Lab assay of single mutants.
Amino acid sequence: HSHMSHTQVIELERKFSHQKYLSAPERAHLAKNLKLTETQVKIWFQNRRYKTKRKQLSSEL
Rank of each mutant, 00 (worst) to 15 (best):
H1M: 10
H1I: 08
H1L: 10
S2I: 11
S2W: 13
S2H: 12
S2M: 12
H3Y: 11
H3P: 09
H3I: 08
M4P: 05
M4R: 01
M4H: 03
H6C: 15
H6V: 10
T7D: 11
T7G: 07
T7N: 11
Q8P: 01
V9Y: 09
I10P: 01
I10W: 07
E11V: 07
E13I: 08
E13A: 04
E13R: 06
R14N: 06
K15G: 02
K15L: 12
K15F: 14
F16V: 01
F16N: 02
S17T: 08
H18G: 06
H18R: 12
H18L: 11
H18P: 02
Q19G: 05
K20T: 05
K20D: 02
K20H: 08
K20L: 03
Y21Q: 04
Y21S: 05
Y21M: 03
S23K: 06
S23Q: 03
E26L: 04
R27V: 14
A28R: 11
H29Q: 14
A31Y: 01
A31G: 02
K32R: 10
K32C: 07
L34R: 00
L34S: 00
L34P: 05
L34H: 01
K35V: 04
L36I: 04
L36D: 00
T37V: 02
T37E: 04
T37H: 04
E38K: 04
E38Q: 06
E38P: 13
T39D: 10
Q40K: 02
V41K: 01
V41T: 01
I43P: 00
W44I: 02
F45E: 00
Q46C: 12
Q46A: 12
N47T: 09
R48Q: 11
R48V: 04
R49L: 05
R49G: 01
R49K: 03
Y50V: 07
Y50I: 14
K51G: 10
K51L: 11
K53L: 08
K53M: 11
R54K: 14
R54T: 09
R54D: 13
K55C: 15
K55A: 13
K55R: 09
K55S: 11
Q56H: 14
Q56P: 11
Q56A: 08
S59Y: 07
S59C: 15
E60G: 13
L61E: 13
L61I: 12
L61S: 13
